[in-house]
Design a protein around this nucleic acid. Structure first.
Lengths: 194, 194
DNA sequence: GCACTTCCGCACCAGGCGGTACGGATGTGC
DNA sequence: GCACATCCGTACCGCCTGGTGCGGAAGTGC
């Protein structure tokens, strides 16, 4: 009952994802966001709560969409393929034509003004979670004999995540998709095998 | 002649370096800066110009101080030692006790609000310059027979820089010095040799 | 101790920030 | 078509931003 919402919330959220992706949490002002979303501040507050809530919703949408390569990578059959898929996924996500360069998560995680601490903490937790999923996957690979028994799953996971983070930084500062694919390939030259 | 300045400009600049390092260009407000520097806004403007100029001066001091590992690394005798020194330098600089975690350059390069474009461009240029110094050094290594003849110096340089950038991101989000040293070691396991 | 130069604390500026109060417009179920 | 719930444009809030004008205090060389 009552008058229904005059805009598509999912579409508006999609627009917000792009703004946060391009400008980070702090760099994205409410004006930037609502202009891109095509709605007024009032509508945004009614529909999403506040800037912080909007960011969390946007992050969810980002994780399920452009950044779903993490969840898919761990499904690969071997540890090497997991690592390759993860890095290739990060290369593609951070250099996607028509989308902002870089990674929404990395942008936001480095935001440091006091008002952005909430957003930052969410992102740090997300990154940690991704790393721990990789670690568990690599631990399974050791059990399955797919990685040498003396491998250190935590260390490998951290290595892969670090390279992916570096790729995100490079993408923002102008590296091309091919440049970064070369980096990803280079990073995997020494991958341990059982 | 006239009344001399009541504070040490180099000391004040040092304080500004720490604030920019911890909070990035956008995250560091004039209040944050002048409070840490122990001077008034007026004095800061008289001594340094404006926020942008202050940032450039701070970056210079950062490059000559905490981030001088780049210039020193390329002096190492072999390409492998160059890469190892560069990565170890970045690990140490980004996890230095008593200093902010992470890299001033990476923080600032990801700052994206329109007012920060000046600072960002300076940092992107700095990063590019560092990468090209590494590339030149690796090209020399190929000539000297220190790297295989079919090595790609640009690719190796980009790889090293990418890992270093990833290290900076990880440092901000809580990785320890030991964690990151492990990452650096892992990154060098596959280093090509002639 | 004088004339002069520089410093620097205070009060202020316009503009943007995230966020909200209000009330008329708009659509709903009955 | 009525009563009601919801939407949303406007106008506004206090606060902080980077930056400045002013005038008295402070130190200089002579």
């Amino acid at each position: 009952m009552g008058r229904p919402r005059g805009f598509d919330a999912e579409e508006a959220l999609e627009a917000a994802v792009h703004v946060f992706w391009a400008q980070g949490y702090e760099g994205a002002s409410l004006s930037d966001l609502t202009t891109a979303m095509g709605i007024s501040k009032t509508s945004m507050y009614a529909a999403f709560g506040n800037k912080d809530d909007l960011f969390r919703r946007a992050l969810e949408k980002y994780v399920e969409g452009p950044a779903d390569y993490g969840a898919r990578a761990v499904e690969e059959p071997t540890a090497r393929q997991v690592a390759a898929a993860f890095l290739q996924g990060s290369v593609r996500a951070t250099t996607r034509p028509g989308s902002p360069a870089g990674c929404l998560g990395v942008h936001g995680a480095l935001a440091t003004s006091a008002t952005a601490h909430g957003a930052r903490d969410v992102l740090v937790a997300w990154r940690r979670d991704g790393e721990s999923r990789l670690e568990q996957r690599f631990r399974r690979a050791v059990e399955e004999g797919d990685l040498p028994a003396d491998s250190d799953p935590a260390r490998l996971a951290r290595y892969v995540m670090t390279v992916a983070n570096g790729i995100a930084v490079q993408a923002v500062t102008g590296a091309t998709r091919q440049d970064l694919q070369d980096v990803a390939d280079t990073a995997l030259l020494n991958w341990p095998s059982a």
